Simulated scan of single mutants.
Amino acid sequence: MAGLMTAGASSPLRAEEPVKVKVFVAAMFEIGQNTGDRAGEFQHWYERYWKDSQPIAVKGALNPVHCNADGVCGSVLGMGKVSSSASMQAILLNPQLDLSQSYFILSGVAGTPPSRGTIGAVNWATWLVDYDLGHRWAPEEGEPGAPTFMPRKGYEALRLFKLNPDLVQWAMRLTADTPLKDSESARAYRLRYPQETARRAPFVGTGTHMTGDTFFHGPGMSEQAQYIAKLYGADDYVITEMEAAAITLVIKRLQGDERVMSLRGAVNYDQGNPDETTLQHLDPAPGQTAGGFAETVENIALVGTRMADHIVAHWDRWQSGVPAPVK
């Protein structure tokens, strides 16, 4: 038989057409359910786009994919480089989804150095840098005051990604004036830090996102992250996170990275204030945390949905590639 036939039909059965994805939103974790409880990285996106969706199971992905009729899809990929990139590869290779023209928003919470960010701020990446691919040694085993990191040869194409400058410019143009949420607890917490930027209200910015499976912390590690960013020729290190460079590598290998965006909201500083040690900051006493988590995850979605909605509403201009930014 040339094909399966339905009873009384004159044409073969056709496989269901894959979903043509215009924007794919990748979160890394959720707290509890996708709706109706405390929101993690996915809930605000889910409640905007997918409350009435039917989940699409994807073999090899940590969680199902959700899609709406406008071609906006999303999923929770898992935390860390291995889980998140494995989920992304499974989703990209799944025949139920056509992501060949998709724009990707890699979305989640993060840390920030107090000299460059503040609690509740939202940041679009200009560069993604892998923090882990290199050699490290204890400070006392090297020259006093010298860096304790050296890049490992052979990883040049894996450790550094310059994201599409036109896409970053569009993102800032469309979202820089987004009204952002704040909280009394976050405002009070900021006053523990002397840095002017650390005391700012939430804002939308850009910079380098540093991807590391190690949850590095303290002024020394923050300085090392900035050293690595500059060593590689990237912009200032502004965000510490655990997934974006690995996810982007998977997307780049399968279809290119010209449509990748990394969007992060700061829920903590990458170091303590002058009156606490690094270990005290890592393991704060009850009531001593930064606050502002709920507001930050909402801010991420407030900013990111502006970008997603614009792309979908003007798909005739965006389908074939990023339009030239308006000057």
Rank of each mutant, 00 (worst) to 15 (best):
Q226M: 09
A188L: 12
M79K: 01
Y46D: 02
L97Y: 04
P147A: 06
I311V: 11
G78I: 00
W45D: 03
L174M: 08
V297L: 14
T211N: 03
A125P: 02
I300W: 06
P64L: 01
E156M: 05
L160M: 12
A225L: 00
V168H: 04
E298R: 15
A61D: 01
W45P: 03
A176T: 10
G292V: 05
D316K: 15
G60H: 04
E223F: 08
H66F: 13
V82F: 02
L97N: 03
I31N: 10
R190Q: 13
K22G: 08
T277M: 13
E143T: 14
H314K: 14
S10L: 09
G272D: 07
L128R: 00
D236F: 00
L133Q: 10
A9K: 07
M261K: 11
R173Y: 10
S262Q: 10
R306E: 09
M242F: 07
F29A: 05
S83G: 04
A171S: 08
P165W: 05
E276H: 11
P113E: 04
A186W: 04
Q288F: 15
R192A: 13
F42A: 06
L282T: 15
K22V: 08
A198H: 08
R200K: 10
Y49P: 05
H217M: 13
A246G: 05
Y155T: 12
N63A: 02
S262I: 11
Y227A: 01
R187Y: 12
A69S: 13
V168T: 08
A313Q: 12
T211F: 02
V267Q: 14
W315E: 15
L99Q: 00
T178V: 11
K81T: 00
Y232F: 12
R192G: 12
G36T: 04
Y227V: 02
T148A: 11
N94L: 05
L231C: 08
Y189H: 12
G212C: 01
Q96D: 13
I239G: 00
H310K: 11
L263V: 14
Y46H: 07
Q96N: 13
S100E: 08
V109K: 04
R187T: 15
A146C: 11
M150W: 15
T214C: 10
N299C: 13
I31F: 13
K81S: 00
A198V: 08
P113K: 02
E16P: 07
E241Q: 02
P64E: 02
Y269S: 13
D309W: 10
G304R: 06
G108P: 06
G32Y: 03
L191C: 14
Q319P: 12
S183A: 15
A110D: 04
L99S: 01
A39P: 07
K181P: 05
P286G: 09
N63I: 01
G117E: 01
A245T: 02
K153H: 15
A138G: 12
T35A: 13
Y103C: 06
I105W: 05
T112H: 03
G8I: 06
M1Y: 14
E30H: 04
E30I: 03
V267F: 13
G256Q: 11
